[in-house]
């Protein structure tokens, strides 16, 4: 169940837009910060809040990379592998992190601690290679520094 606090925050968000549906993405971010993801039963609640059909909420959920309809690992590590980063060794970095964590990119560690992904351009092209850990950018990385950052995650 979406908490009362989140519900009232969503109501407040709705007032910022000419139509309340405008608050859908902000609301999904908020709800995801409460639950870690937006499960189908939560999507039904969201649909009710926004006078939408559940399928319309799920369409939105599955269109965007940063909101999820399935449970996520505790930390999300995304290594940019677009051109500027690849030119500066991003793929090698990703492989080393895969080896370090013992998982393939696109999967999570068995303990649910870290999800490792390759990511499209994150807008740090001159500071490559880089990775985004949760909401933080780590730039100009070498493999050892990156591993250290992952090791320091709770």
């Amino acid at each position: 169940m979406i908490s009362d606090a989140t519900r009232s925050a969503v109501s407040e968000l709705m007032t910022r837009f000419p139509e309340k549906r405008g608050a859908l993405l902000p609301a999904l971010h908020l709800i995801q910060s409460e639950f870690g993801h937006v499960a189908p039963e939560t999507a039904v609640e969201v649909a009710d809040l926004f006078d939408l059909q559940p399928v319309q909420v799920l369409e939105v959920l599955r269109f965007y990379n940063l909101i999820h309809d399935t449970p996520q690992a505790q930390h999300h590590v995304a290594v940019c592998t677009n051109l500027s980063c690849s030119l500066r060794g991003a793929r090698d970095l990703l492989r080393q992190l895969e080896a370090h964590l013992g998982i393939a990119a696109g999967t999570a560690t068995a303990d649910g601690r870290i999800q490792l992904d390759h990511e499209e351009c994150l807008g740090a092209c001159a500071y490559a290679p880089m990775m985004r850990v949760d909401e933080h950018y780590h730039e100009d990385l070498d493999a050892e520094t990156a591993k250290g950052i992952l090791d320091a995650l709770e």
Partner: peptide
């Protein structure tokens, strides 16, 4: 009003 996208 600041709105955050969601990755697209």
């Amino acid at each position: 009003v600041v709105v955050r996208g969601a990755g697209a």
